[in-house]
C-alpha cells in the first residue's frame, strides 16, 4: 500500500477509490459535487439512454437497444417472480432500480480512469440497509408479530429451536453486512488487483505476464460486475420473500 522508495515500483492500488471534489481542492462537504456525483450521474444517464431513449420507438419488432432494455426488464421481472413469488411483483420497480444502478455502476467503474461508486462501503451499506429496513418493516406490517416465525423453525426438534432461533437472529442481522460488503469487496478487490498487476507491468521482465494477467482479470471483472449485481438483486428477492411469506 505504501510508496516503495527503493525498487522504483509504485503501488497505489487504492488511489482510484479516493473521493475528490470535481472543482477545486477543498474539503468534501455533503453537498460538494465530487467524482461520486459525476459517476452516479453517468450511471443515471446510461440507464436513461438504455431504458428511456432506447425504447422511444415502442417498436413491435425491437431494434438492438430496445431488445437489451426488454431483456433487462424480462430478466429482473422473471427473477422477482420466481424467487419472491407472485405478490413480490409489486416491489419489482424497487428491485429494478437497485439492479440497474448496481450493474451500471459496476460496468462504468471498469472504464479506465473511472471511479467505481459501488466499491465504497458507504454506498453499498446504504443500499443494503435500505433493503434490510424495507424488508423488516414490510415483514412486520404485513404479518404483524407473525414475522418472528422466520426465527422459530417448526420443523426442527423442540430442544434445538432456541439454539436455531439464536443462529437465525444472528444471521438475520448479519445480512446487511454481508450484503453490502460482498458487493463493495468484490468491486474493490478486483480493481485493486488490476492496479497491482498494472504496477508490475512497469518491470520489463514480467510485463508480458502482467499484461496478460490484467486482461484476464479484466474479463473476470466484467463477469463479476454482472454476477454481483445479479446476486445483490436476487438476495433482495430472497429477503423480500421472507417478509412476504415468513413461514418456512
Amino acid at each position: 500500500m505504501a510508496t516503495e522508495e527503493s525498487g522504483g515500483l509504485v503501488f497505489h492500488p487504492m488511489d482510484q477509490f479516493v473521493v475528490k471534489p470535481l472543482f477545486g481542492d477543498g474539503p468534501v462537504y455533503w453537498y460538494t459535487p465530487t467524482n461520486v456525483t459525476l459517476w452516479m450521474f453517468l450511471s443515471v444517464l446510461a440507464i436513461s439512454l438504455l431504458l428511456v431513449v432506447g425504447t422511444r420507438g415502442r417498436a413491435i419488432v425491437p431494434n438492438r437497444v430496445q431488445s437489451i432494455a426488454e431483456l433487462a426488464y424480462g430478466f429482473v421481472y422473471k427473477m422477482v417472480e420466481d424467487v419472491a413469488g407472485k405478490d413480490g411483483v409489486r416491489y419489482f420497480p424497487y428491485i429494478m432500480t437497485l439492479f440497474m444502478f448496481i450493474v451500471f455502476s459496476n460496468f462504468l467503474g471498469l472504464l479506465p480512469m473511472s471511479f467505481t461508486t459501488t466499491s465504497h462501503v458507504a454506498v453499498t451499506a446504504i443500499l443494503a440497509m435500505a433493503v434490510f429496513l424495507t424488508v423488516t418493516i414490510l415483514g412486520f406490517v404485513l404479518n404483524g408479530v407473525g414475522f418472528l416465525n422466520i426465527f422459530w423453525i417448526r420443523q426442527a426438534p423442540l430442544i434445538l429451536r432456541p439454539i436455531l432461533a439464536l443462529i437465525e437472529i444472528i444471521s438475520y442481522f448479519v445480512r446487511p453486512v454481508s450484503h453490502s460488503v460482498r458487493l463493495a469487496g468484490n468491486m474493490m478487490a478486483g480493481h485493486a488487483v488490476i492496479k497491482v498487476f498494472a504496477a508490475f507491468a512497469a518491470i520489463l521482465a514480467i510485463s508480458p505476464f502482467a499484461i496478460v494477467a490484467i486482461t484476464a482479470m479484466y474479463a473476470l471483472e466484467v463477469l463479476v460486475s454482472f454476477i454481483q449485481a445479479y446476486v445483490f438483486a436476487i438476495l433482495t428477492c430472497v429477503y423480500l420473500k421472507d417478509a412476504l411469506h415468513p413461514h418456512h
Binding site: 500500500m1 427473477m79 420466481d82 424467487v83 454481508s178 460488503v181 460482498r182 469487496g185 468484490n186 478487490a189 454476477i227 445479479y230 446476486v231 436476487i234 438476495l235 430472497v238
Partner: peptide
C-alpha cells in the same frame, strides 16, 4: 440456476468476511 447463485452468494459471504478482516487489519 438462481438457487445456485444464492448458494454461491452465501458461501462467498464468509470469504468476504475474511477479506474484510484483512483490510481492517491493514488500514
Amino acid at each position: 440456476t438462481a438457487t445456485m447463485f444464492i448458494g454461491i452468494a452465501f458461501a462467498e459471504a464468509l470469504g468476504i468476511f475474511s477479506f474484510l478482516v484483512a483490510l481492517l487489519l491493514m488500514f
